Computed example of a mutant assay.
Amino acid sequence: MNNQYTGITHYYDLLMNSGYYDYTSLAEDAYSVLGRGCQILELGVGTGLLAEEYIALDETCQFTGIDITTSMLNLAQNRLGDRVDLREENALTMELNRTFDAMLSNGGVWVFLDWGDRLELASHLSDYEQNLQGLQNVVHHLREGGLILLNRQKPGVNFSKKLPGGIRYSQVIEPIEDNPEYRLHKKRYFFEKDEQLLAQEELTMLFFKQTLYPLLFQDVGLEINPSKCCSNFITYQKQSSDR
């Protein structure tokens, strides 16, 4: 899996803490869907900001977070201590020897982009087959009837903003390919101070259009559950094995 954020971990955490996401609202929405005492797996736990907010709402949940970036997990460990089970794992290949009531992805492996009149499924994985494999593995780790909550957010745009310590963040999005089924683009992160580049990262993102992503979910046995969707998340449910 690409897109590991290794070179920008410290600055990424600074950016995420500056209002890039409203983690309180995200956690409240997820909790309103899941309720108390769930066994939850976060796909792409990052530096632990969503996990921190969620476990503050529900101290009875059993929260596990995976990520492929060691430096992200180190920051998450410092933030969360032993309140969350943190593991360096890849969604494509993980074998956790257990199942979960629910999974969360907030800009982790998958996220939905809401264009107002349509949705697209954004992925850090590079092609259909990898996404199929990753979602099959996710479903393998979900109990029957389990839920996967994928963050719904607005499409990214080019912008810059000031961060604490005199640091300026900017992001640049460059389209690469566009066809009837999917789009590809590059997203570049830059952190600068006093006109000096401190860190940068380049990601390649794949966007499945509405002609394709429903087939992907159908192929792995997930169906949308409208009654469990909310302002921040699109929710899919693992179908019964006897269907």
Rank of each mutant, 00 (worst) to 15 (best):
R152H: 07
P155D: 07
P175D: 12
L216G: 02
E202D: 10
G156V: 11
H185Y: 08
V172N: 12
I167L: 04
F208L: 08
K162E: 15
E181W: 13
K193H: 05
P180K: 03
K186A: 10
N158Q: 14
L150E: 05
F208A: 03
T204R: 08
E174G: 06
G156N: 10
E174T: 15
R152K: 15
I176E: 14
L150H: 03
G156P: 06
R152E: 11
G165L: 01
Q200S: 09
K154G: 09
K162S: 15
K186T: 11
K162N: 14
A199N: 01
P180L: 04
F207Y: 11
Q153S: 14
K193D: 00
L215K: 13
Y182T: 08
I167S: 07
G165T: 02
N151D: 13
F207H: 01
Y169M: 02
T211F: 03
I176F: 09
P164C: 05
K193R: 02
L215G: 06
P175H: 06
K161M: 15
N179E: 08
L198N: 05
I167A: 04
K154R: 15
K162Q: 15
K161T: 10
L216S: 02
E201S: 01
K187L: 15
G166R: 11
R152C: 12
F190N: 04
Q171D: 11
Q210R: 15
L212T: 05
P155V: 01
L198M: 00
E181K: 12
N158E: 13
L150A: 09
E181S: 12
L216K: 01
F190G: 01
K193I: 03
K186P: 02
